[in-house]
Write a protein that binds this DNA or RNA. Structure first.
Length: 342
DNA sequence: ATGTTTCGCCTGGGTGTCGG
DNA sequence: CCGACACCCAGGCGAAACAT
């Protein structure tokens, strides 16, 4: 995903050649500007009229495309000059565009909000791994505005990335719940393993493993409440986007989503009774199988199967009532998550 | 080698201000 | 009125430094 691009959200290191060269104005390509409305002619005239020497423009070496300095180029033409001072940029087309945005944000005629928003959307496609703050720093938008644009335009690759690269070049997960659950299972299976061993196997940092271990010791969920809320919100957004398809049951519980959440809990997965509970629920969740099951029942058994089904239903009802009566901390906690996310 | 602490950064939520 | 923005805060992260 990152071929031909810089490793982190900064293009400052070693990409800009500091040597200034004089280049023929006619050889330069004027395309792919971050300005949606093109350059401002009045601004170019203003530069041309001011008799001060302007700094070199930045040009993408391989394509001779102007990255920064369209107005200065226009001013040079207005002044009747054939050549202009240029600093070449050696990098990918994608990075060249970002440099163009950064340059226009930080000096000269500022980009409009529409320009910057369009630039952010383009960066999401070319550099989906960048953090909101990194994109914000490049486009001159606020990080929260960038996050909002990302949510609006989240499609394909950008929506699937689970981690982002910050301005410090470090990779951080957007939601590390899966890594925490993996670590939780590994900690139960290998109680003597070091934090670093668990961290390596689970794909998270030792610091996070340490936090998971402390949570398990306190009998807490390895995933913090906030992350669980975020997961539930995501599930609900998907359900909303699907318009309430199979599995979405209106006001009722989304059985599949609830089942997936239960199956991710190491406490349930690591105990035999927990696994039994998951298996019992699992056979009920796939409602599309119901018609197939009805069809497979031999004609001599319908009455017996019906009675058996009612009997099981009564058992489950009693089970639910009994569970409801036990107002334990964990149960209340989970319900609070569901309520808050709703 | 391992566990712990520290640091700088991240996201997301809340609140108030400002300008189109 | 709404969107963008600037703050502030909480909770979380990876990486490095430090202590044992």
């Amino acid at each position: 995903m990152m071929e031909g691009t810089s490793k982190g959200p900064s293009r400052k290191s070693g990409l800009l050649d500091s040597d200034v060269e004089s280049v023929s104005v006619a050889s330069l390509v004027t395309a792919d500007s971050p300005r949606l409305a093109g350059e401002n002619v009045e601004h170019a005239y203003a530069i041309a009229r001011s008799n001060t020497a302007f700094p070199p423009i930045i040009v993408h070496r391989s394509s001779l495309r102007i990255i920064d300095g369209m107005h200065r180029l226009r001013a040079a033409v207005l002044q009747g000059r054939d050549e202009i001072d240029v600093t070449f940029f050696d990098g990918s087309e994608k990075d060249a565009f970002i440099l163009a945005v950064e340059s226009n944000v930080h000096h000269g005629l500022p980009l409009t909000l529409a320009d910057r928003t369009a630039a952010a959307e383009r960066i999401f496609k070319s550099h989906p791994e960048w953090s909101d703050r990194a994109v914000a720093a490049a486009t001159g938008l606020a990080a929260k505005t960038v996050a909002a644009i990302r949510r609006r335009s989240a499609t394909g690759e950008a929506a699937q990335l689970h981690s982002r690269i910050g301005r410090d070049g470090k990779v951080r997960p957007v939601n590390n719940a899966e890594g925490r659950r993996r670590a939780g299972i590994l900690l139960v299976q290998n109680p003597d393993a070091s934090l670093r061993e668990i961290a390596k196997a689970a794909g998270i940092s030792p610091g996070t493993v340490r936090d998971v271990r402390q949570r398990l010791r306190r009998n807490e969920d390895p995933v913090p409440l906030r992350q669980r809320k975020a997961e539930l919100k995501t599930v609900q957004k998907i359900r909303a986007a699907m318009g309430g398809g199979p599995g979405a049951t209106g006001r009722g519980l989304d059985q599949k989503a609830a089942m997936q959440a239960l199956m991710r809990d190491p406490q349930l997965r690591m105990s035999s009774d927990g696994r039994l509970l998951l298996r019992l629920f699992a056979v009920h969740v796939e409602t599309r199988q119901r018609q197939r099951l009805i069809k497979c029942i031999p004609s001599r058994w319908p009455r017996t199967v019906t009675e058996l089904a009612y009997s099981c239903a009564r058992e489950w009802y009693q089970f639910a009532k009994q569970l409801e009566a036990c107002e334990g901390g964990e149960t209340a906690d989970s319900e609070q998550v569901l309520e808050d996310a709703g």
